[in-house]
Amino acid sequence: MKKRFDKKVEAIDSKVDKYRIKFKDDNARKVKEDVFDEYTLRTLYKLSKLNIIQAMGGIVSRGKEANVFLADGADQTEIAVKIYRITTSSFNSMEEYIVGDPRFKNVGQKKHEIVFAWTKKEYRNLKRAHEAGVRVPVPITSNRNVLIMEYLGKDGVPYPLLKDIRLADTEAATICDKLIDYINKLYTDARLVHADLSEYNIMVEPNSREPIIIDMGQSTTLEHPRANEFLLRDIRNITKFFTRFGIENDPDKLYNFIKSP
């Protein structure tokens, strides 16, 4: 088994050398074969040729559909490289978010076509959210199954998730108010619903205690037939989390307020 894995690693190394993709260290280079397939390596090569990626670093987070890597961008700035896996991920859940989104009427049925559309969708969603004044990772570009965006962390250490950070009650109240404001701005100004908002996809800047909404691949436009359902679910998730700090909000009242003209 180990010999078979070593051969796969050697094959990946050979392809990496072929496309001249620079890695910061050996640990960054040793990534499972399900991430660096031919599509991904070609895309990373193109982004490195455009000087968007200087060198790939290690994994910041692993998800069901994608891995996020730390990388050096232009001028050695830290950037995040989110790579959606094509060969090993199950994207059945993506269909409910893509179908009904008018921006993606003509998406093909092949797995790589769905993944490419999903990556582009997240880039566009982040761009719209950022322009509406919602604190999200600033998107830089996307290509095929690779999304480049602002790295949320410092010196290689990512910011903590909301679920993991200790908060005083007053800090929690401020963050709760800010998140409700962001949900409202997403809906009113960006014309989007996050559709999976919870303490698991909100990061917090440790010093300023600023909440940052992440993972917007599934976010939908208001034209989506389930947009209202997703909006109410987002509100309920957030209000439920903050009850542990003694903060009580009526999700139905917040929903009606956000929906009101």
Rank of each mutant, 00 (worst) to 15 (best):
A66F: 02
Y97P: 03
K24R: 12
R135S: 14
V16G: 06
N125D: 03
I52D: 01
R20H: 09
Y97R: 11
G108M: 07
D26Q: 12
V68Q: 04
D25M: 12
K15S: 14
K32Y: 09
R85P: 10
E96D: 00
T40Y: 05
S48E: 10
H112S: 13
Q54G: 02
Y84T: 04
Y97E: 06
I83Q: 10
V31Y: 02
A132T: 08
V31G: 03
N67A: 01
R135A: 15
A66I: 01
P137W: 07
I148Y: 12
K24Y: 08
R103I: 05
V60T: 15
N125W: 09
I148R: 13
F69G: 03
N67K: 06
D34M: 10
L41S: 05
N27S: 10
R103Q: 13
Y84W: 02
T141C: 11
F69H: 09
L47P: 03
T119Q: 02
D37L: 07
V81K: 10
S90C: 10
I12D: 00
V9R: 04
I83G: 07
T119H: 00
K3E: 05
V60A: 15
P102H: 01
M1I: 03
D101H: 14
N27R: 11
E38S: 05
E95I: 15
P137I: 05
M1C: 03
A71K: 11
R85K: 15
K110I: 02
K82Q: 11
P102Y: 01
E38L: 04
L126P: 12
M149W: 14
A129Y: 14
K22T: 01
E38K: 03
Y45F: 11
G73A: 00
K120D: 03
V16S: 07
V9L: 06
V138G: 02
K120R: 10
I59K: 14
N125C: 02
A132R: 11
R135G: 10
K64M: 01
V134I: 15
K121A: 13
N51L: 07
L50R: 13
G73Q: 00
K110T: 07
M149E: 15
A129K: 13
E122S: 01
A80F: 12
E65V: 00
D37K: 10
N27K: 13
L47C: 04
G100V: 04
N27M: 07
N145Y: 02
M149L: 14
F104D: 02
Y97H: 15
D72F: 03
D34I: 13
D13M: 07
V60R: 11
E10N: 05
K3G: 01
F104Y: 15
T141V: 14
L47N: 05
V16N: 08
F116E: 15
V134L: 11
Y84Q: 11
E96R: 06
R20C: 04
T43R: 04
Q54H: 02
V138I: 09
P137T: 06
A129V: 09
L44D: 06
R62T: 14
G133Y: 11
K121P: 04
R124C: 06
G133K: 10
I59P: 04
L41V: 09
